[in-house]
């Protein structure tokens, strides 16, 4: 049962990732990426990282992608770009396959095939975040603040020049 869910999630994740790259219209790319984010969230949930799965949906699917779709719609980019060539895609898969061929046997030897019973619940992640990693956490909030101010300045400048 779990295997079927895993294959389903990873297949859809792969297909939607390819769709992001291959679809000429940016808006459809964005839709494919939203689907991709959900699949990744599902994989997180399968790895017992419940907090991150939810955070993935809230942050990526709920905030970042809405912003991206917002921008695409605002700039009304209907997309006239040509499709990226298939040759490159095939080449990329060849490289990846070669890489995977090299990595996989070494991983199996190093980690074994069974996971630990670690669960990334809200409580455990939160505890670590607010004790050991409190400084990076606060720094991250400053980073967000700087990003907000930066975004406002970047998108406002045009108006100031005109006035």
């Amino acid at each position: 049962m779990e295997d079927i869910v895993w294959y389903l999630l990873s297949t859809v994740a792969l297909l939607s990732a390819i769709a992001v790259v291959m679809i000429p219209k940016p808006l459809y790319s964005a839709f494919a990426l939203v689907l991709h984010m959900f699949m990744i969230a599902g994989l997180f949930a399968m790895l017992d990282a419940h907090f991150l799965a939810t955070a993935q949906i809230i942050v990526y699917a709920g905030a970042i992608m809405v912003l991206v779709i917002f921008v695409i719609m605002l700039l009304s980019l209907q997309g006239a770009e040509e499709r990226p060539s298939l040759l490159f895609s095939v080449a990329s898969f060849a490289i990846v396959a070669a890489l995977a061929r090299y990595i996989v046997p070494r991983l199996d030897a190093a980690f074994g095939s069974s996971g630990t019973d670690l669960a990334g619940t809200v409580k455990s992640v939160g505890e670590l975040l607010y004790t050991k990693y409190i400084f990076p956490f606060e720094a991250a909030s400053v980073l967000i603040m700087v990003a907000i101010v930066g975004a406002v300045i970047l998108s406002k400048r045009e108006k100031k020049d005109a006035a």
Partner: peptide
């Protein structure tokens, strides 16, 4: 699922 599946 073993780790290498995820990594691949």
């Amino acid at each position: 699922m073993p780790l290498n599946y995820y990594i691949v």
